[in-house]
């Protein structure tokens, strides 16, 4: 099976003052297209860091990452920004919606960077909000929605541009059980029904259960599973 994400010998450290904090140590793995992967591991093990590298919002110190055939390390900052807007859909733990924009406008935001007409944008936004079941909440502002609904808007924003991969960092980490279940069901549907490749960071075993593959990260290295 073709792998859509290739991570080769990636290392990454952060610097706090003059102290080096090693986070990832020579990590290599591949993710096939259509995969639904859960990255697990204790807090501070480097899950978010690895996800950020794959999603192209941070760069490794060593090693190489390719997504859908593009070596993203070779892209300039602005090329990388453009690449993210077409290839990656982001889902964050705290939703990260823009509070002054309605659900509709939040989902429309990444579409503003495309060449779509206003009418085409509306079709995309409505379709995405329908997938997440919020077609009747389009004019609501984030603070008028529940946490679960906010996260669904965030998912709609992530899929509106029809990206190559979806990355989710603890998408249920801030939700009650019922809302979390809804979100997990939604992600599962996106994978099975819409064939989206999903990389999800979580430390919730119930969340990981839904994924097709689970990998465990500890102290910057994969544990044998």
């Amino acid at each position: 099976m073709d792998s859509i994400i290739q991570v080769q010998a990636v290392s990454k450290s952060y610097w706090r003052d003059s102290f080096e904090i090693p986070v990832l140590n020579n990590v290599s793995f591949e993710i096939p297209a259509g995969e639904y992967l859960a990255l697990m591991g204790p807090s501070g093990s480097g899950k978010t860091t690895l996800l950020n590298l794959i999603a192209g919002i941070d760069r490794p110190d060593k090693g190489q990452i390719s997504v859908a055939g593009t070596n993203i390390g070779s892209l300039s900052e602005s090329q990388l920004a453009k690449w993210r807007s077409t290839h990656v859909g982001f889902i964050f733990q705290f939703y990260n919606l823009i509070p002054v924009l309605t659900a509709y406008e939040n989902v429309e935001l990444p579409l503003l960077l495309t060449s779509l007409s206003k009418k085409e944008r509306r079709q995309h936004v409505e379709a995405a909000l329908t997938v997440v079941g919020l077609q009747d909440r389009m004019q609501h502002y984030p603070k008028q929605l529940s946490g679960g609904q906010e996260q669904r808007v965030a998912i709609a924003r992530a899929i509106a541009t029809d990206p190559t991969i979806l990355v989710a960092d603890e998408p249920t980490g801030d939700l009650d059980k019922n809302s979390a279940d809804e979100i997990l069901k939604l992600l599962e549907r996106l994978n099975t029904e819409f064939h989206k490749t999903i990389v999800m960071v979580t430390h919730d075993p119930r969340a990981a259960e839904k994924a097709r593959v689970v990998r465990h990260l500890d102290k910057g290295e994969f544990k044998r599973s």
């Binding site: 602005s78 920004a81 453009k82 993210r84 807007s85 990260n96 823009i98 935001l109 990444p110």
Partner: peptide
């Protein structure tokens, strides 16, 4: 600060 980071994540340029 965080919103600007989100916009950049989504691909908004400098």
């Amino acid at each position: 600060t965080r919103e600007y980071a989100v916009l950049k994540t989504l691909g908004f340029s400098a």
